[in-house]
Design a protein around this nucleic acid. Structure first.
Lengths: 345, 345
DNA sequence: AATCTTTTCGGGAACGTTGCCATTAGTGTA
DNA sequence: TACACTAATGGCAACGTTCCCGAAAAGATT
């Protein structure tokens, strides 16, 4: 990969590098004839400015870092899709990191991030993360950061989330209204903001309808299939097992469905199931999965927009950071409502 | 984001930058006392070498570019997962680009790639791409490139694919062996290598079992849901409609399933369906989807390994480039076999 | 004719780092 | 005592670009 440089052009045309540089950028203080000469030569030999040299000079990289737990998770890949879209239009590069839900890996990633001099950071916290000092440090040093989906109260910056409380509330209330009495909630990692908010929504819906809280119906669970099986079995070991499960994520809902099938527990007859998800295939599952949809793509876009806002106005700090709540939507399908006809076609 | 530099250390310790540089890298020609002094100062003020300055000097970026059609496609996000894994261990950054199945966008991406001075490129071609001059140019200029999944014969470099022919052959033969007579094949973009190979496998299986080829049963189709509906309707407008559909991708299979449901055509009773996919949820669909599994993660890993091999041995060009074929596996589920009991529980 | 402006260009520093080539002081050798 | 030799360090160029400063020539103004 050899590249022609401004020096090469200068030498070939018997000009100085400064003249070539200015000609290339169309400066008015260059003779139109010279300008044309330079332009044509550059065109002919396919001159491309070296962004690394520019980065060194301007002390910015025109790239942003993105840290997500797993890229191979539809929610995050959709969000990244949105991020890439905005970044592309801004002429920025997107550099991807995965924490694999590990705190240590997340810390290492942030170190890479700084050493690589990205201009900003988008991050959704790992499930293990309870301490956010590594991010605070970066932010204090002036790195623009936007948190999305899995956020932390301890960092004062822009944040983008979906309305987890409302979504959770609506999902739970839907189960109540369709006659379910013992509604279990399976949450993800207890450290996560999304878990906390969704648990709150769940509890609020129960409270509104005067349903007593049964601690044994509130479970926290990892994404692994074995973990889910354990939780399901615990729930059904209960003297009066649940007649509905509201799971806090797509993966959990899929795991539940799979386990329930294996245990020969019928959905929705024996138990209603509703997820918190964005899976495109939710409608095609057996039974089709009721769910609370999150706008992953929009979350990615919005987060990226906010980040670029911070990056480009890095001098004048915003007087106040905001947390943007995006809509959620309850979609009722067969897993939560008995429609015997459709289910048995 | 302010960073301490070697100059800062030199000034503070009353040394020259070269001495500091050498001390930091543990050179033997530096007095151990000085070395320690420098090391401690660097540690204390959290010195991190500036990779951009290094890149400029060494003319490499320690980053690789990845161009995929859509990141929000489970196959590609899994592949990227594998790529990121290898790159992480090598200390390289992964920069993501999407072509959105557009040839123009792909060309623009390759331009960005070069101007950004990545050290290597991993690419899976867009569905529109028929001309690969843009990649040939890069390759001729010495940029290490590895193609994966959607490859082109016209570029002579390492390639990683799954055994599309065999997978397709096995899938088709499975349908034949379970008694299907009129087997349709819905392929993706006719330009894609994967389409061609899968069509070949399909035809080979028909030939082996002396089933005449009916051109009207071989369709090419985009990923859009409307496109799929059109194709399905065409197939069923046939005087003797198919009794099996073998689709060449996950998305197509999902679209088919959805359309068939809408048209009230029963799977697998009226028609068998089998996909070419890696979807984790395939087992949970209604009916569960028979499929040919591709090792997306492994493809990503292998591609990345090959790329780093090329990057690190860039001086000595390999005498011959290879195309690596990874295994596929046929998984039979309910969409292709009638198991009336299980299906009606 | 003398001075002031423009126009058009070149020189050189700077960004952070490395590596080559001095340079100094101290040590050993003939 | 003069010489070579080593250890330890400094100076400087280079990577590609921009930008500030200055300079020369031509034109405009008095």
């Amino acid at each position: 990969m050899e590249h022609i440089t401004i020096k090469d052009i200068a030498k070939a045309l018997n000009l100085s590098t400064s003249t070539v540089s200015r000609a290339l950028r169309g400066s008015h203080e260059i003779n139109p004839v010279t300008k044309l000469l330079v332009m044509e030569y550059a065109e002919k030999f396919n001159y491309q400015p070296n962004p690394i040299a520019l980065s060194l000079k301007e002390n910015k990289s025109r790239s942003i870092g993105v840290i997500v737990p797993e890229i191979d998770n539809p929610f995050f890949s959709q969000a990244i899709n949105g991020i890439e879209d905005i970044a592309y239009n801004k002429g920025y590069q997107v550099v991807i990191f995965q924490s694999h839900e590990s705190y240590e890996r997340e810390v290492i990633n942030t170190q890479h991030i700084t050493s690589r001099r990205v201009d900003g950071l988008l991050i959704s916290l790992s499930g293990q993360t309870t301490n956010v000092e590594h991010l605070k440090n970066l932010h204090d040093k002036g790195l623009p950061i936007v948190l999305f989906d899995r956020i932390s109260d301890e960092i004062n910056t822009h944040k983008v989330i979906s309305d987890n409380f409302e979504g959770s509330f609506n999902g739970t209330e839907h189960l109540i209204k369709t006659g379910r009495k013992r509604i279990a909630h399976i949450a993800a990692s207890p450290h996560l903001s999304i878990s906390k908010e969704r648990v709150k929504g769940y509890l609020a819906a129960l409270a509104k309808h005067n349903i007593p809280v049964d601690e044994s119906l509130l479970k926290y669970c990892n994404y692994g299939l074995q973990d889910i099986e354990v939780v399901i079995d615990q729930l059904f070991a209960n003297e009066t097992p649940p007649d509905a499960i509201f799971t806090a994520s797509d993966r959990l809902a899929l795991g539940c469905l799979s386990t329930l099938k294996k245990r020969n527990i019928k959905v929705p007859e024996d138990i209603a199931l509703i997820g918190f998800t964005n899976l495109k295939v939710a409608a095609l599952l057996a039974p089709s999965l009721s769910t609370i949809v999150q706008p992953a793509l929009d979350m990615g876009k919005r987060s990226a927009e906010l980040l670029f806002d911070l990056i480009e106005n890095t001098s004048k700090l915003p007087k106040s950071y905001r947390t943007f709540k995006l809509y959620t939507e309850l979609i009722v399908r067969n897993s939560s409502v008995m429609k015997s006809d459709e289910e048995r076609l």
